[in-house]
């Protein structure tokens, strides 16, 4: 009863209604704008626009199920996982913690779209910074689905083992760097609940299971909305790049020890392909590019790409997002160059 009254009052208050009006007007403007493009654009320009839409929706439709799955895992964690469990399971030692973070993907099989809401939720449940960062960077690769898809594409061999060893090593090292950082310097206020009095410690175990399940799904919905914004902007940027920048300018650089690695890392960043399937695309580079380059495509891409780095903005402060792009970039680049120079692969 009290709830309904509060809802009605919230519904009648000024701010949500203003937001709703802004929303409806802006959707109308968007619809008019798209309609106008169809009306006035030359056929060749409109064809380009359609290519953009096809690639954008390709990424979105492909990623939406994985993002939704990640959001639902996040919602379930929020409602069902006891806060103290996180503290109990994660080891105290920074070394062990970062390592557990790097291999925790086997317990939460998510790709790079799903991992962000789950990480954010685990932070709200009190997970240490370093563990979360290792998890965030490694989980898109270190999970059973990606093992299966990489195996399907490459079979047993240096690419499969290299992909997992490099990912775990890089994620572990970067996680370790954040061991002594303060959460309030790293996390956005929404994520950082270390000083939050609203921290939801209230006992929910007495509430009916079905009630809690619905609540978990609604939490998932809010998470999905939060994260899908970044996913959508990211896929639009990736699609725009693909519609404008000629791939040949990138692929012309395929053979060199350095240029091949740099090229595939840029490509991985721009294409923003889901980590569960990027192995199949990487397969098509094997003949043209050096092994180090193909490996860097498979290790760097899942850690950082246009859409996931935008999604990071929903969890971390802006400066930290820059670190989370630059550090994996440098480490993966270095490892790939060493592979190209000192192994005969």
């Amino acid at each position: 009863m009290q709830n309904t009254i509060r809802e009605i009052r919230a519904g009648l208050s000024e701010e949500p209604r203003r937001q709703a009006v802004y929303f409806l007007v802006s959707v109308l403007v968007l619809v008019l704008f798209v309609w106008l493009i169809g009306l006035v654009a030359q056929e060749s320009v409109y064809a380009r626009f359609q290519v953009f839409v096809t690639i954008f929706l390709g990424i979105f439709v492909e990623a939406a199920p994985f993002l939704l799955a990640g959001s639902i895992v996040s919602g379930l964690i929020d409602i069902f996982l006891d806060d103290r469990l996180v503290e109990r399971v994660i080891p105290d030692s920074p070394l062990a913690g970062a390592f557990v973070g790097a291999i925790m993907g086997f317990a939460f099989p998510v790709c790079e779209c799903g991992v962000v809401p789950v990480t954010r939720r685990l932070y709200q449940k009190g997970m240490p910074l370093s563990v979360g960062i290792s998890f965030l960077l490694a989980a898109p690769v270190v999970n059973p689905i990606v093992v299966a898809s990489t195996y399907a594409a490459f079979g047993w061999g240096p690419i499969l083992s290299g992909r997992f060893i490099i990912t775990i090593a890089v994620a572990f090292l970067i996680g370790l760097l954040f061991t002594w950082a303060k959460p309030q310097d790293i996390l956005r206020p929404v994520t950082d609940v270390s000083h939050d009095h609203h921290r939801h410690d209230h006992d929910t175990s007495g509430i009916h299971f079905r009630e809690r399940l619905w609540a978990a799904i609604q939490v998932a919905g809010n998470d999905f909305i939060d994260m899908a914004r970044y996913l959508i902007i990211g896929s639009m940027l990736a699609a725009l790049m693909q519609t404008i920048v000629p791939q040949s300018t990138l692929l012309a650089l395929g053979g060199g020890e350095f240029s091949s690695v740099a090229t595939l890392m840029v490509l991985a960043f721009v294409l923003s392909i889901c980590s569960t399937v990027d192995a199949f695309l990487a397969l098509s580079f094997v003949n043209t590019f050096t092994t180090g380059a193909v490996l860097s495509f498979l290790t760097f891409g899942p850690m950082v790409d246009i859409k996931s780095s935008l999604m990071f903005l929903g969890v971390f402060r802006r400066r930290v997002v820059a670190y989370l792009i630059v550090l994996p970039l440098l480490l993966n680049l270095l490892i790939a160059l060493l592979i190209n120079m000192y192994t005969g692969l």
């Binding site: 929303f23 619905w214 609540a215 939490v219 914004r229």
Partner: peptide, 23 residues
Amino acid sequence: ADGDLAHEHRSVAWWGLLIIAVP
């Protein structure tokens, strides 16, 4: 869902919802 359990006091700005409508 029970709104309190799903702690829905945080609201989304209009432009956030607009982006969801784009696809």
